[in-house]
Each structure stands twice: as structure tokens, then as C-alpha cells.
Design a protein around this nucleic acid. Structure first.
Length: 623
RNA sequence: GCCGACAUGGCUCAAUGGUAAAGCAUCCCCUUGGUAAGGGGAAGAUCGUGAGUUCGAUUCUCACUGUCGGCUCCA
């Protein structure tokens, strides 16, 4: 009844029915509650309830009106339930049991239609349903109704719903309620927050178990968990919410990524800059950030009668660099990169590990170009992007082309034809490169259309990893120009791109993608030398030093532990190469190579291992 | 910010209205062992912060802070 379902598959249909059974169970357990809405989803289903129910809408009793509890109103209070009641996780088993009863009873689910008038009357107590009914009314349709036909009136559950459903409740497979959450009606934070119950259902118990098992497996890859276990990063309440610290192991990965990006950008003619983390209010007034994003900027620091703001974006600094001298058409394109540290005052509830933080660094760049260079520049960005994703081993990603909405006043920064020109240029580069993309109308930033690169993480959620944006705003506001062939001033185009939109978010994605077993070139420790006995520690140390001198990150584990224990510890740390050295290896100047995937490669000459691992690192291959 | 839950040594966690158990990690001793944890011992928590109830609170209540699951948002 909620989600558009062109071709509902049997799984969706079954989950949708499960969701109705949930609602029916809830109404039995919590009289007076109001059912709002809920769909079947990719992973299961959910339903939103208004627990305050009718008390919210009818403060005083009116005779003969609907009364969910079926009891006669007592004086003083019309309802026999606590309007402040809440549902807790511990209530889920109780609800599940009630659902199971309904399923076991194998009630028929039947479809009928009501006229709008009838429906209004039948659902007069439920404003949420009335909204759906009015929707149907607008379309001039009858109201589709599904009924779970119980054996007696209190056991019958009637709902406004487009369907389809399974024929009987008994056809609903094994299910499980998963969690409780708050959710705004119509997804709008201005609206009342409802209580949402998430659940899932599968045709068989095996499939349900598999799903739950997969969830547990995914949880093992949770970047926060691995971040702690592998000592990659930490967030200290004493330092601040959303202000992560890169621990030494994380730092190595961060620096490798930075070196990589720097090299790639230099190869493509980028220059780089570093701009301050705080800047005068004036700068952000010019850029427009203060006007548009004031709420999510940290409050200013006032000093010497000046207001200084933490930068939420590096763009204004880049604009200043461009403006710092006269630019000729010959100078373009001018590509300026920055590992820009920015601070945004995200709402506390939005913070999430490294995925959503308040202080982060972008692999940012601005490309200033002539109109005739736009296509080639966009193409180059796409080329770099594809190479980057390939080198990082990401194969599952797609593009989202975010366009303006001509009707939305938000997009008044430029004329319609300018918007169309820019949007067509982005579209063209996607088409020319034969990239798959989805169009998202009305998703453009106020200052221009953009291409976002979306990747799906191990929890099945989407992350924006990279972004390529066209910017109308900044060239205008900063009065950028270059001298053309005829000696006249012209305004450059600005492409704003961040291949790593945030090192922090990217790191979260990377950790989960690899489950902490990073490609060798990124591994904090690339090889660990494991001497078998104390006799071998001197040799182990010499191997370690030799590797370090060759630029390989190596450690020697000289603890008085058994080899098994050392191997186990190295496994847990997901160190790619374990080099076992005993008397045999020592006398033959070799190392016995064990890989973190469990493979025992046997002994090879140290020199040979050295060139082997160097090759692997250089080629960015993984094991 | 909103809804809900949670908060015990570095980590994972147990128990309890009368100041807290265990494993891992740490330190010490023994063991010198060939591919995922050798054995023993020691030290380590006043139970997130503040207030209230109580003779007495880590345990009950409230507030705050933080974390987690969602919602909203993400220039």
C-alpha cells in the first residue's frame, strides 16, 4: 500500500503479508494504537505505528465513536492504555508470538474495494489511512482493501492496501522481528515521529537462518569493530564526538592513499595547495557558505574584532589561489588539488563511526577550465576515477547523475540554459564513457549538477565515495576570470571533484570492503618475521632490517612464544606475509613463507622473497 | 536534532541493595617449541558523570554525557 511495486515477486508479497500480520498482532496487543504505513523491503519489511494512537487526535470522548479497546470509557480517561507507552526490544518476542498465532490460524487474506466514502467512514479513526484514501480519491480510484479474515470480529484485520498478498496467513514463512526505531511520518522531520518495527521473513527457516548468519558475518567487518581490533582509528569522547584519531596503523594506510592520489594527480597535471583550517567570515560570505550552510558550520572564533570560521569546504581557498594572479586562456585548465581538512557541525545523531564525522579530510580538487575544455576535463576526471577504483579493487559501483529541478527555486543560481548546458555535459561524458548511471532529478546541489559515485558496502547500504560537481556559484561570487585570445575577460568554468570525498568515510568503506585484510601495498605491516627459537632472533632481526631497508614494512616477533602463538597473532592482525625462520632457514639464508590465507609457500631465498613482495606491492595486487 | 536501547579494568564480558567474577591483553617465572593460543604466578576496575531514594547504591529514580540501532540530514 506504500511502495510502488510494478512486479511484486513472491518474496515481497509474502513479506508484505507478514507486515500485515505484524500490524494485526500489534493492534491486538496495543489497543488504540494507530497503524500508519510500511512496505516490504529488499531485506524484509517494516511498519510504522503511532503508539499514542487515537489520544493524539481525539482528546475528548464522543459518543458512539470508534473505540479501539472495545471497552466502555471510564470517567476521566477515555482510553484504557497509557498514551506514553512505548515498545521495547524485549517486547518483540511477545509480538512475534502473537504473529505466529495469526499465521498458525491460517486465516484467509481477501481483497475487496471500497468507495472513497465508505473507506473514509471505515477508517475515520485513523488519519494516516485517511491520507492514503485521499490519495486514491485524487486519482479517482476506488480504495483497495485487504482483510485478514479471522474467526471472529476482533480477529479480523482490515487495511487500506494495494496488495498483493498471499492467500492465507499460513503461507507466510519463518519470520523474525529485528529492531525498533523511530521514523518520521512521510520521512519528514517536521512531522510526528512514529515507532517503526523492522522484521524479515523468508520462505524457509534455512533461508532465514542464512540471512541472520550473513548479518553476523557482516558485523565482523564493521569498520568500528575492526578499527579497534586492528588499531586503525579511535574516537575519544575526551577529544570530541565525530572527531576521529588516526592511530599509527591507520596513518600508514592514510598516507599510502595520499601518496597514491598525489602521484596520480601530478601525472595529470594537477598542482597542490594547503589552505588554513580557519578563515575570516568575509571569505565564507563571499563564497556563500555562511548564507547556505550556517547551521552546519562550527560557530566562529572571535579574535581582534574578527570572526574566524573553521572551513566546511576548501573551495574558497582554491578560489583565492586562482585569483592570486592574472590567468590567461593559455594557463587553462588549471587543476588545483588539496587534501582539505574541513569541519562540519553535523547533528549528533548523524555521526556514525568514520562514515559520518565532524572533522575530515577530502581529496579535493578544482579544475578551472575554458568552456571548450569542459568535455575533455570531465573525461579526464572519469578516467582517473576508473583507474583509482581499479587500483583499489572496487568493482561494484555506479554513478548517480544529480540534476536540478526546474520547478525548485533552490536552483536559481544560474539560468535554465546554463543548467541544461552543464547537465548535458555531465550526461555526455557518462554516455561517451559507456558508464552505467541513474538520473536523480532534484538532487543537484544548489550551485550545480553533479555525478556521485555510489558503492554498496557490506551491510548493503550505499555510500557516496566520490563526487564530480559543476559549480556555477564560485566563479561568479569570486569574480574569477581569465584573458581570452582577444584580450577580453572571460569567466572560467569550475569543476569541483573529490575522488576521495572524505578519507575517513573512504577508510570505513575500505576496512569493510577488505574485512581488515588490506591489499599488501596498504597493509600497515606487510611482513612479520617469526623466529622459531631464541637462537634465531638475531637472524630474524637481520631479515627485518633488510626488508625495512628495502622499503617494506616489516616486524620481527621475538617474544618467547611458540611458533603457533606467533602465527595466530599475526593471523589475527591480518598480516599478509609471515616469514618463519628456524635453523634451516638461517643456515640457507631463506625464509619459510606463510600467507594470511593459510597457504604455506615453503622456504625461499630471502633475496627472492624480497623481489617477490616488492613486485606485489608495486603492482598493488592482493592475496 | 528526533525515537529507542545501552554504558562494569586496555578488550570481551559475569554478578550483586552491603565496594565486583572470568577470559584475552599486560608484567614476572618456567618452557626453546616448526605453521591459528605451552604452563604457572602477579598486578589491574570504586562499576560513564552528577543528583536523589536508602542505615547503605555499581545495583532503584532523575538529569547529563557518550555509544549503538534507526529517522532526518550529508555543500
Amino acid at each position: 500500500m506504500s511502495k510502488k511495486q510494478d512486479q511484486p515477486n513472491p518474496m515481497e508479497t509474502m513479506r508484505h503479508s507478514a507486515e500485515h500480520v505484524l500490524t494485526m498482532a500489534m493492534l491486538k496487543l496495543y489497543p488504540g494504537l494507530l497503524a500508519a504505513m510500511g512496505p516490504a523491503t529488499e531485506e524484509g519489511f517494516y511498519f510504522d505505528f503511532d503508539l499514542e494512537g487515537e489520544t493524539r487526535f481525539r482528546k475528548t470522548p464522543s459518543s458512539g465513536s470508534y473505540h479501539a479497546s472495545g471497552k466502555v470509557p471510564s470517567s476521566g480517561s477515555y482510553f484504557d492504555f497509557d498514551s506514553k507507552r512505548k515498545i521495547q526490544e524485549k517486547d518483540l518476542p511477545k509480538i512475534e508470538k502473537k504473529m505466529q498465532d495469526i499465521i498458525n490460524a491460517d486465516f484467509p487474506i481477501t481483497h475487496t474495494e471500497m468507495s472513497v466514502e465508505e473507506a473514509r467512514k471505515a477508517f475515520s479513526n485513523n488519519p494516516y489511512k485517511l491520507e492514503w484514501i485521499e490519495e486514491a480519491n485524487k486519482r479517482g480510484e476506488k480504495v483497495s482493501i485487504y482483510t485478514i479474515q479471522g474467526d471472529s470480529p476482533p480477529n479480523t484485520f482490515v487495511d487500506v492496501c494495494k496488495g498483493p498478498h498471499v492467500e492465507r496467513t499460513g503461507k507466510i514463512g519463518p519470520f523474525k522481528l529485528l529492531s525498533i526505531a523511530g521514523a518520521y511520518w512521510h520521512g519528514d522531520e517536521k512531522n510526528k515521529m512514529l515507532t517503526r518495527i523492522y522484521g524479515t521473513a523468508y520462505p524457509t527457516q534455512e533461508e532465514l537462518d542464512k540471512y541472520l548468519w550473513q548479518q553476523e558475518e557482516a558485523e565482523k567487518r564493521n569498520h568500528r569493530k575492526l578499527g579497534q581490533e586492528l588499531e586503525l582509528f579511535a574516537i575519544f569522547p575526551e577529544i570530541g564526538q565525530g572527531l576521529p584519531v588516526w592511530l599509527p596503523n591507520g596513518f600508514i594506510i592514510r598516507r599510502e592513499l595520499e601518496d597514491y592520489m598525489l602521484k596520480v594527480e601530478r601525472q595529470h597535471g594537477y598542482q597542490h595547495t594547503i589552505t588554513p583550517v580557519i578563515s575570516k567570515a568575509e571569505l565564507f560570505e563571499t563564497s556563500g557558505h555562511l548564507g547556505f550552510y550556517n547551521d552546519s558550520m562550527y560557530p566562529p572564533i572571535e579574535v581582534d574584532n574578527e570572526k574566524l570560521y573553521l572551513k566546511p569546504m576548501s573551495c574558497p581557498g582554491a578560489m583565492m589561489v586562482y585569483k592570486s594572479k592574472t590567468r590567461s586562456y593559455r594557463d587553462l585548465p588549471f587543476k588545483l588539488g588539496e587534501f582539505g581538512l574541513v569541519y562540519r557541525y553535523e547533528k549528533s545523531g548523524e555521526l556514525h563511526g568514520l562514515q559520518r564525522v565532524r572533522g575530515f579530510t577530502q581529496n579535493d580538487a578544482h579544475i578551472f577550465c575554458r568552456p571548450d575544455q569542459l568535455d575533455e576535463q570531465l573525461t579526464e576526471v572519469i578516467k582517473i576515477l576508473k583507474q583509482f577504483y581499479k587500483d583499489l579493487g572496487f568493482t561494484q559501483y555506479w554513478m548517480r547523475l544529480s540534476l536540478s529541478d526546474p520547478k525548485d527555486a533552490k536552483y536559481k543560481i544560474a539560468e535554465r540554459d546554463e543548467w541544461e548546458k552543464a547537465e548535458n555535459a555531465l550526461k555526455k561524458v557518462l554516455d561517451d564513457n559507456k558508464l552505467e548511471y541513474k538520473i536523480a532529478p532534484g538532487e543537484a546541489a544548489f550551485y550545480g549538477p553533479k555525478i556521485d559515485i555510489q558503492a554498496v558496502n557490506v551491510f548493503g547500504k550505499e555510500d557516496t565515495i566520490s563526487t564530480i560537481q559543476f559549480d556555477f556559484n564560485l566563479p561568479k561570487r569570486f569574480g574569477l576570470s581569465y584573458t581570452n585570445e582577444e584580450g577580453k575577460e572571460e569567466k572560467p568554468y569550475v569543476i569541483h571533484r573529490a575522488l576521495i570525498g572524505s578519507f575517513e568515510r573512504f577508510f570505513a568503506f575500505l576496512i569493510e570492503h577488505y574485512g581488515g585484510a588490506f591489499p599488501i601495498w596498504l597493509s600497515p605491516v606487510q611482513a612479520i618475521v617469526l623466529p622459531i627459537t631464541e637462537r634465531n632472533t638475531a637472524y630474524a632481526n637481520s631479515v627485518q632490517v633488510l626488508l625495512e631497508n628495502e622499503g617494506i614494512r616489516a616486524e620481527a616477533d621475538n617474544r618467547a612464544e611458540t611458533l603457533q602463538a606467533k602465527i595466530r597473532d599475526a593471523q589475527v592482525r591480518k598480516i599478509p606475509y609471515m616469514l618463519v625462520v628456524g635453523d634451516r632457514e638461517e643456515s640457507s639464508n631463506s625464509v619459510a613463507v606463510r600467507l594470511r590465507n593459510g597457504k604455506n609457500e615453503g622456504a625461499i631465498k630471502l633475496k627472492e622473497f624480497e623481489s617477490q613482495i616488492k613486485k606485489v606491492i608495486q603492482e598493488r595486487t592482493n592475496l
